[in-house]
Design a protein around this nucleic acid. Sequence first.
DNA 1: GCGATGTGCTTCGGATTCGAAGCAACTGAG
DNA 2: CTCAGTTGCTTCGAATCCGAAGCACATCGC
Lengths: 173, 173
Amino acid sequence: MTSPRPSLDATQLGAYFALIEASSLLKHAVEQQLREAGDLSYVQFQLLATLGDSPTGSQRMTDLADGVVYSRSGLTYQAQTLEKRDLVTRTPSSDDERSTTVTITDEGRAVLARVFPGHIAVLDDLLFAPLSRSDIETLADILARARDHMRRTPPRSAEPRRRKKTTGTTQAP
Amino acid sequence: MTSPRPSLDATQLGAYFALIEASSLLKHAVEQQLREAGDLSYVQFQLLATLGDSPTGSQRMTDLADGVVYSRSGLTYQAQTLEKRDLVTRTPSSDDERSTTVTITDEGRAVLARVFPGHIAVLDDLLFAPLSRSDIETLADILARARDHMRRTPPRSAEPRRRKKTTGTTQAP
DNA sequence: GCGATGTGCTTCGGATTCGAAGCAACTGAG
DNA sequence: CTCAGTTGCTTCGAATCCGAAGCACATCGC
């Protein structure tokens, strides 16, 4: 098991901390802007943006949760909140009776349009300002690779639900 | 104010989304490992690591909060939690009576040592695996610049508390 | 058909967050 | 010294988040 891994070197540590810090700082800043501009939380914005981006303007709950890296229960909560504000509608799917389809409303699109300019402004000022064109391209490339890899690699014990048979040793799978 | 900013181009959007997604995925994975290995939340780990890294093993509450990008009240909560588990101690500073100094205990260091190997393993497997040496260096460099810039640039209305007089305008000091 | 298993979503309970307000200690001008 | 303004931390209340458990529909094998 845990092969004797030495400590990370300075560069790796630097990359890791910089990633966490940069995303935290950015997220906080964006969160504030969204709250002021449209009274949206970050997740709510992500959800609306994801829906708005979709060709049909709708998505299944589960796919939506996957897309924004959120727990399903957390998504239910946020979807209810958005529904109360009439920014999305939720209807049972015709295919699968147990599946719920979430769709963005015109009002949802309006809110999205209202907060977007400020959102972009924050990104420009905070994230992109100190970076060159090629920096941004490089960053996008590297992080996209990392993300895709993580998407493919389940986080070390993440069965969809509960593995049933077998005594399911808590030990090393 | 908001100068008429057009939309972001594809590369910028890609960089932004990749940053958010990658950090979210990584954080989730790390969180799970920390929970299993030492029953620590991500913040708690960050706090212990920050303290362990400090030459004296202690820090003021506020500096600690700044370091991990956290609210002060949130830090109070976590510090209390850690204190209950005897992983840190909190003592009033001798200099400033109102200041609290947090110090990591031997047991805190022990927990840190226990979770660290697994922590590094997750980073290696998820974040660094798909990246080359030079990728990591580049990533560290770019993100460090972005982070430093954000640290310097208050998020568009975030005075520490209430600005008193001085330059008055929120403009350039 | 009919039950066993799997999947999609929600509810429930508990933990963690943050911002605003409050308290106590420091600092500087008069 | 004394008072007003600041700063360091905590408390309070409300919002958000997650995992586990539960409910309802779907699908597969018999």
